[in-house]
């Protein structure tokens, strides 16, 4: 009887048009990579709805080295870890810092990138004081569910933190003048200061890294059960570090804005 019930349930699930990635336990032939597609220069969806950016090139390179077929899934940042846990893809490559808080949920591969953290504001901003006292009552924007959001929450309680679904929307509101500051990593902000934010905004100061909140750097995130996948990526990442191919891609995509 129980067998029959199982059979029925299995049949129902299959009929429901469900896609099961079959028999992956032993060997990884195909890897689904989740990214955000709204965080240039790391990953970005262009007008042709194609993904581009450092991480897109980099992960494709890793896949080449691992000899696996990779497919990309675009997922909003807010749901990027839940969707990994819910098996919508197998690894997150999305400029994600390997923090302790996230380690409770997922495992991280080796760190492949580390960038400073900046605070940016309108050109008219005087001085470069970014202490919590100096920013009291100011509107400070960051992307929600990021280390920067947690950073604001921990140290800037008296400011007016605004969290956005994507970094780009926060940038837009800085241009529009709704925000007094935004905090994010230097590369995303350099991209902004070299591009759309050229006329409006400038670097105010570099944010000192807080070990507990910011973590050691950017890494891929996998489910805790997928140890084989983590090992595979760790090895490929080490190779790209050794042969300089990671550095080459970083140089291609990352143009840090001139610091004043």
């Amino acid at each position: 009887m129980k067998g029959f019930v199982r059979f029925l349930a299995a049949a129902a699930l299959t009929v429901a048009g469900v896609t099961g990635a079959l028999a992956q336990a032993k060997e990884w032939k195909e890897v689904r990579i989740g990214t955000e597609g709204a965080y240039p220069p790391y990953n970005n969806l262009n007008a042709k709805k194609e993904l581009e950016g450092y991480e897109i090139d980099y992960a494709n390179l890793l896949c080449e080295k691992m000899k696996v077929k990779c497919t990309w899934v675009v997922q909003d940042w807010d749901g990027i870890i839940p969707a990994l846990l819910a098996n919508k893809y197998d690894i997150i490559i999305a400029g994600m810092n390997a923090t302790d808080e996230r380690k409770k949920q997922v495992d991280f591969t080796a760190v492949y990138n580390k960038t400073p953290i900046w605070m940016v504001g309108p050109k008219a901003t005087k001085g470069n004081e970014i202490t919590p006292a100096a920013l009291k009552g100011k509107a400070v924007g960051a992307q929600g569910s990021t280390i920067h959001a947690n950073f604001l929450e921990k140290f800037y309680k008296d400011s007016n933190p605004r969290l956005y679904p994507t970094q780009e929307e926060a940038n837009l509101d800085l241009i529009n003048g709704r925000l007094d500051y935004i905090v994010a990593d230097a590369l995303a902000l350099s991209d902004f200061l070299n591009g759309k934010g050229k006329d409006c905004c400038k670097l105010i100061a570099e944010v000192p890294r807080d070990a507990a909140i910011h973590g050691p750097g950017v890494a891929g995130a996998v489910r805790k059960s997928d140890t084989a996948l983590k090992a595979l990526f760790d090895k490929a990442i080490a190779e790209t570090m050794a042969d300089g191919s990671n550095k080459k891609l970083e140089d291609k995509w990352f143009k840090l804005a001139a610091t004043n």
């Binding site: 469900v18 896609t19 099961g20």
Partner: peptide, 16 residues
Amino acid sequence: LQRLWEWLGLPGSFSM
């Protein structure tokens, strides 16, 4: 559904 999938002992994984 993922849990159900595992309980049924089906191979691989489930994704909606």
